[in-house]
């Protein structure tokens, strides 16, 4: 138990530190690399809860695909410090305000929720293997099949939209 607490503190420190460094680095590439480290440490939190599938999918999707595309784009655009757009003051202050509002909502959600993973651990229930996840996600009666399929349709729509946007830019 002690080791896990220690690991949790270590991982949390890395996560928070790299998240802040992502925002405060002047160099966009450094920001992206800090974000990659941040994703890995969040993945470490998943492993602490013994959710192997969530961990590995998180790494494949975020660190392996999205951040590589991000780095690719940043390198391609060759951003410099001068290119940074200065937003008007009103916009910046409203961004800060809405950030804190979002924080409040998330905190309330955390306070309201009941942590259930500990109970599963005590009972020895399998809550993380692919078989259980697949049953929960794709069972049409007491699972989440309809939301799951809707999410995939949403992703498809976003993909088609992105293709359409890039096509339009080329013809003009």
């Amino acid at each position: 138990m002690h080791t896990i607490t220690l690991l949790f503190i270590l991982l949390s420190a890395v996560t928070v530190a790299t998240a802040f460094l992502t925002i405060f680095s002047k160099n966009p590439i450094h920001s992206a690399i800090y974000l990659v480290i941040c994703f890995f440490s969040v993945g470490g939190h998943y492993l602490l809860m013994n959710s192997q599938f969530l961990f590995i999918v998180h790494i494949i999707v975020y660190a392996g695909a999205i951040m590589i595309l991000f780095l690719f784009t940043i390198m391609l655009m060759n951003l410099n410090k001068e290119d940074e757009v200065h937003k008007p003051r009103l916009q910046r202050w409203s961004a800060v305000l809405f950030f804190f509002l979002l924080c409040a909502v998330m905190m309330l959600i955390f306070f309201q929720s009941k942590p259930i993973v500990g109970d599963y651990d005590d009972l020895g229930t399998d809550y993380q293997s692919i078989k259980v996840l697949g049953k929960v996600l794709l069972d049409s009666e007491n699972g989440f099949m309809v939301p799951f399929e809707f999410a995939s349709v949403l992703l498809l729509v976003a993909m088609i939209g992105a293709v359409l946007l890039s096509k339009k830019e080329k013809s003009s």
Binding site: F53, I56, I60, A63, G64, F72, M75, I130
Partner: peptide
């Protein structure tokens, strides 16, 4: 012997390009 061994192989593969990208940049 982990449950998601094949995905693990995949995850490591997808991270592999960072070495080239970071070094080259």
């Amino acid at each position: 012997d982990i449950d998601v061994a094949l995905l693990y192989v995949f995850g490591v593969l997808s991270v592999g390009v960072y070495g080239i990208m970071i070094g080259a940049w």
